[in-house]
Write a protein that binds this DNA or RNA. Structure first.
Length: 670
DNA sequence: AGACCCGGTTTTTTT
DNA sequence: AACCGGGTCT
């Protein structure tokens, strides 16, 4: 503790001359920033002009610092609309804006906040002309993107039987990594898929067709949103200048998980007003599969002049016992991190490492323990179960249901990714953008008697504009399509041309879709709930374009909770992938399936960098706990892929000494 | 020729 | 749960 205070003081003295050249009269502020923050936090929160890199360890009050900075800038009289806060999720942005509003006043909720992608979306719609775009572009989510690639992949003579050709997901990954990292396709293949190097020419050809296809059909995938934004910014035309003059301060949260493309966007955003603050933690970088590189944060000082670095090292979240455990996980890393977290909380319990003889006993143990915690007064909402991959929780979900414990799952399969929601969305997307061929294809295939070939024929007619939904659907009868197809065109014509609210358009689609829906899904009863939820969501929108972009960019599951439980009478247990648990905290945290082969995943074995990332993932998971940390693993877990039973505890916990964690064994008579 | 049905296989992580 | 491949039906 004493040593740490000294450290903080030193930073306080070195890095701050410039921003304090003009002293500010603290008394006139509503909030006493100096008293409510520690010196390092205060230094960051009171920064105004210039470039700042805030290295903030887990639980060191990073959010708090950003929130106070927002409030302080507003108190200084800057227009909230001139402050841009880029976060990793929409949820994080909203939380910060709400907290700032509570701290000061409602002006703080008027700042610009969101993810890189949602910000890109709103800029590109507003400045579509200057960005050389049709403003009614459709956003392709990951599934849509691979669908498009698949369409192209199957059309040309790319796939031969002799030599394995990359599948649509792999192709998408290659293209996406290339755009996000700035590396060439060739480099990406050499590094990640050397066995496909012979196909390089074809892979490049498909990419060319793919790009052209998106252009022609007015489609943007996730990466395109950022690429168009970057180009628009670098273009520095009148539109760009108008935007850049309006944005005075840029803040980026979770900077360790940004990639080259995003760094370029940040650079572009700050060309005129060079006020930038990025916040991150290199030991929590867990998104390299998306092209993120934690070296981005280390390279940040090279990107701007006179970058001031501020470190936050005092942890307010976890007990020292939890931190000792997390620090030990970090010590096993090849790439050592400079931070060593210290807590201001002491006297906690040691974390538990729990070995259960089977997966089901692991689940039963967790259920029992959760009930116990609840008896002790820990609210369900303050407990979370975290895991590496979303399917690890299947068995637990069954046990929780049996025990009547309500839970909400984050990560894994999303609402908008389920087939029936995608079906309905496809209708609406055609109405919004009749050039959206992917949606056309999906909708056409829903109809009996229409397969890939017939669908393609109709698509060809649409491309020549002999068929259209913009004109009276009578023209469809000229073609010899079934009644069903004629009806479909009538529906789409109606939706496209009328001026109804999105919810009313959705209702028309649902009336049409329902018979098909009942026919193709055995479990339509269960799925019907989702359609109802979607109806509720749609009522919040006045524009179809907005509804559709939000469905593509924002994970809808969040808004469902917000809509359904505003008073939060019912508490939920949280089940979450570690990736989705980023930035969050709970009183008690369980990390399950911590077995060699699952976590770290056997897929990461052949690559040192990915193993290191698995370790950081374990670090992120354990630092989510404020008070109690339970790390569990089943000793007999059949792995279908390898055909063997996995039983070795993960290297992350087997290296843990007994003074850092308490070991338990759960066997049959539990 | 094209649609459809069945069964086996395969699943990291996310905007 | 969704994808792929192969076989069968129209």
């Amino acid at each position: 503790m004493i040593q740490k205070k000294y450290k903080l003081k030193r930073i306080y003295e070195t890095g701050r001359q410039a921003s304090f050249a003009k002293p500010v009269d603290e008394v006139r502020f509503v909030i006493n920033y100096k008293n409510e923050l520690n010196p390092a936090q205060y230094e960051a929160a009171s920064a105004v002009d210039g470039a700042y890199l805030i290295i903030a360890g887990a639980g060191t009050g990073k959010t708090r610092t950003l929130v106070y900075r927002v409030a302080r800038l507003v108190e200084l009289g800057y227009d909230p609309q001139s402050i841009l806060l880029l976060t990793f999720t929409r949820k994080a942005a909203n939380e910060m804006m709400n907290r700032a509003a509570l701290l000061l006043d409602n002006r703080c909720s008027k700042i610009l906040g969101g993810t890189f992608h949602s910000f890109a979306n709103s800029v590109l719609r507003k400045y579509s002309k200057a960005a050389k775009l049709d403003p009614s572009f459709t956003i392709l989510d990951q599934g849509d993107t691979t669908d498009v690639i698949n369409l192209i992949r199957n059309q040309g003579a790319y796939v031969t039987k002799e030599k394995r050709f990359p599948n649509k997901e792999t192709l998408n990954k290659v293209y996406s990594l290339s755009t996000n990292t700035g590396k060439t396709i060739e480099e990406i293949i050499e590094e990640n898929y050397p066995h496909f190097i012979d196909h390089l020419k074809k892979i490049l050809d498909i990419q060319k067709v793919f790009k052209e296809y998106k252009r022609r059909n007015n489609l943007l995938d996730y990466d395109d949103l950022l690429v168009y934004l970057k180009n628009f910014l670098e273009d520095l035309n009148a539109g760009t200048k108008s935007l850049l003059h309006s944005i005075k301060f840029v803040m980026v949260d979770e900077y360790q998980d940004t990639n080259k493309l995003q760094a370029d966007v940040v650079k572009g955003l700050t060309q005129i007003n060079k006020n930038i603050m990025v916040v991150g933690d290199d030991s929590q970088a867990i998104y390299s599969f998306r092209g993120a590189n934690f070296k981005n944060i280390i390279d940040f000082p090279k990107l701007f002049d006179d970058v001031k670095i501020i470190k936050l090292e005092e942890n307010y979240r976890s007990t020292q016992e939890v931190l000792n455990f997390a620090n030990r996980v970090n010590e096993g890393a090849f790439e050592k991190y400079t931070k060593h977290l210290y807590s201001i909380k002491s006297g906690g319990e040691l974390p538990f490492i729990v070995a259960a003889s089977t997966e089901n006993l692991q689940s039963k143990f967790i259920v029992e323990k959760i009930l116990e915690l609840r008896e002790e007064g820990v609210p369900l909402g303050d407990i979370a179960v975290l895991f590496r991959s979303s399917f690890f929780s299947f068995d637990l979900e069954i046990e929780l249901t049996k025990a009547n414990i309500p839970f909400q799952k984050f990560g894994g399969m999303k609402f908008v990714e389920s087939a029936h929601i995608k079906d309905v969305l496809a209708f609406l997307r055609i109405a919004a953008n009749p050039k959206d061929v992917v949606s056309w294809y999906r909708v056409l295939l829903l109809h009996e008697g229409v397969g890939p070939k017939t669908a393609q024929k109709i698509l060809d007619e649409l491309a020549t504009a002999r068929l259209t939904i913009k004109a009276n659907p009578e023209t469809v009868t000229k073609f010899n399509y079934s009644d069903k197809i004629v009806k479909l065109f009538q529906l789409l014509y109606k939706i496209h041309t009328t001026n109804n609210l999105p919810s009313e358009k959705l209702q028309m689609v649902l009336d049409y879709y329902y018979p098909i829906f009942k026919d193709i899904y055995d479990d339509f009863n269960k799925r019907n709930k989702d359609l109802e939820i979607f109806q509720n969501i749609s009522e919040n929108y006045k524009s179809l374009d907005n509804l559709l972009s939000d469905m593509a960019i924002e994970p809808i599951i969040d808004s469902v909770i917000d809509v359904e439980a505003p008073d939060n009478e019912e508490e939920y247990l949280t089940l979450s992938t570690i990736h989705s648990a980023k930035g969050l905290e709970w009183h008690s945290v369980f990390v399950i399936h911590v077995v060699e082969g699952y976590f770290p995943s056997s897929r990461s074995y052949d690559n040192v960098d990915s193993l290191e990332e698995e370790r950081r993932l374990m670090y992120v998971a354990s630092t989510r706990a404020k008070q109690n940390l339970f790390v569990t693993y089943p000793m007999n877990l059949y792995d279908r892929e390898a055909g063997i039973t996995l039983s070795k505890p993960s290297r992350f916990i087997s290296e843990m000494s007994t003074d850092l964690a308490e070991g338990w064994l759960i066997d049959e008579d539990f």
